[in-house]
Amino acid sequence: TQKQRFQGIVHSLTDQCWDICMEKPSSRLDSKTSFCITNCVDRFIDTSNFVVNRLEKTQSTFSSELDN
């Protein structure tokens, strides 16, 4: 379902951004860590979009490579 897909992506992003942004867990989520997590999500989506867009431009090359 749509909701499961959404939660699957949130799990995967939380997993990755936690490793990048969280140092020692403390009694609250400090602003530096919050900022890092939000940026991490945004830059990860930027990266995915960049990859997909760039792939579309080179689609023919890519298809032939995958068909090897």
Binding site: V10, T14, W18, P25, T33, V41
Partner: peptide, 24 residues
């Protein structure tokens, strides 16, 4: 004590990621 804080921060992070991803 560390696990308790870690757990709360992981849930905070999950909620923050969920919000950031929703808005995108």
């Amino acid at each position: 004590k560390c696990i308790a804080m870690c757990m709360d921060r992981y849930m905070d992070s999950w909620n923050l990621v969920s919000k950031a991803y929703s808005s995108r």
